[in-house]
Design a protein around this nucleic acid. Sequence first.
DNA 1: CGGAAGTTTGACACAGATCAATCTAAGTGG
DNA 2: CCACTTAGATTGATCTGTGTCAAACTTCCG
Lengths: 246, 246
Amino acid sequence: MAPTPIPSLDMLIRKLESIARLSDEERRAIERLPITGRHLAAHQDIVREKDRPSQCCLLLEGWVCRYQVLSEGKRQIFSFHIPGDIPDLQSLHLRVMDHSVCTMTQATVAFIPHEAMLELTATFPGIAAILWRDTLVDGAVFREWMTGMGRRTALEAVAHLFCEMYVKLEAVGLARDHGYRLPLTQADLGDALGLSNVHVNRTLREMRESGLITLHSGKLEIKHWQELAKLCDFDPTYLHLERLAA
Amino acid sequence: MAPTPIPSLDMLIRKLESIARLSDEERRAIERLPITGRHLAAHQDIVREKDRPSQCCLLLEGWVCRYQVLSEGKRQIFSFHIPGDIPDLQSLHLRVMDHSVCTMTQATVAFIPHEAMLELTATFPGIAAILWRDTLVDGAVFREWMTGMGRRTALEAVAHLFCEMYVKLEAVGLARDHGYRLPLTQADLGDALGLSNVHVNRTLREMRESGLITLHSGKLEIKHWQELAKLCDFDPTYLHLERLAA
DNA sequence: CGGAAGTTTGACACAGATCAATCTAAGTGG
DNA sequence: CCACTTAGATTGATCTGTGTCAAACTTCCG
């Protein structure tokens, strides 16, 4: 519906190449993917629980999250996604959505038909492997969040999330100098970490008062990365960013 | 080291065929996989965090779990696995282990070299898709556990786990009549659900007193499936057992 | 028959939830 | 450009689910 400039598959190619080199043939095949670009408003569902989508959604701009609403109205956020991610890649092999995906900010996305993706991955096992890998990293992040909710204090959990998002953003060139735009409300943070909005607020106050961070109008600055990382025992191994190894 | 009777790849074939039909060629390729069977004692690590395994582990008998130990000594269990599972399938595409895998009971496993798996999946995209799918279901279970820790009470969380394990066991023919062998200590349950062993104990007492379950010497019986499922809002969609749809 | 591992129970402490105001900033319409 | 509205942030008071500690009890097994 929105005016749609030509979106770009460079994003996807760059992402895949950050893991493994692509052959010319593979690159050309990706460029031939039939995509549909779209601009979305903030707080808008892209896919919903129970849906049986026929396309995947490559995020080009903005943040989206995956979430589920329990019967009593409580919400659990499972992940935050940034440009380059394909938040619903799993729908390629799991027919029914067991959760929803929605935008946190205005967003630009490119929809890719499952059919085209399936053909691509059947033809190029190398590409399939990289995408598969991507969903595995996804799983690793879920595990880390489990640890956060199960075994970390509120302070540690918030700190850990801040570190995680920084490393992910930095890896795709969207953050530097330990600062970034964090387009989340305190309630969003709470729903992601299993905390109440009130307690998130108090935790943030504590972090500010101890001088670890600065956060206003959606701008987060980590003032003492080392200390913050140490506080929450942050170890980026689970993000499996090969680049870090180099 | 242990005496090793010939392990069987039927387990794997049956599992894959529960999702999609295999061609004769695919089936033969699987049967040709060079596997090494092994018996393991209980409470023994199969792979450890930081390892770079060169093989995957197909579980034939017993239970294993995936877990991580935090620096303060707390443990978070991420999943329980039952026969037919390949708990470390992710190591096929993520070089470094970000967590450990260990046996909960005596177990029989078959190790399959990565090399052979990679060749198999590169040659047969259909098999790759089923295995990929399997890791995606894994992720779905992680999400459900996140919901449990973030938004459910202890009672609901324990109930949900009991339902989940029953459905998974029943699906592979290892449970019926809403009862099964649960080879976990209360501390194990706590580490999986983000609770203390003491509180797990109280929660179990509550469940017993309300007549919902029976649990002694490792035998769990769900006396009122409907009520238990309702109590914790259990919906097996996230397990993506196609068979249920039929 | 020990002994170790696991379970159960009680007393008490605390992290975080809940409830309810108030405050602030960013729109929005006139 | 300002009054109005509204979403979100903040704060205080209070409550509660769950953790911690410590002891006793049970079960199982060598």
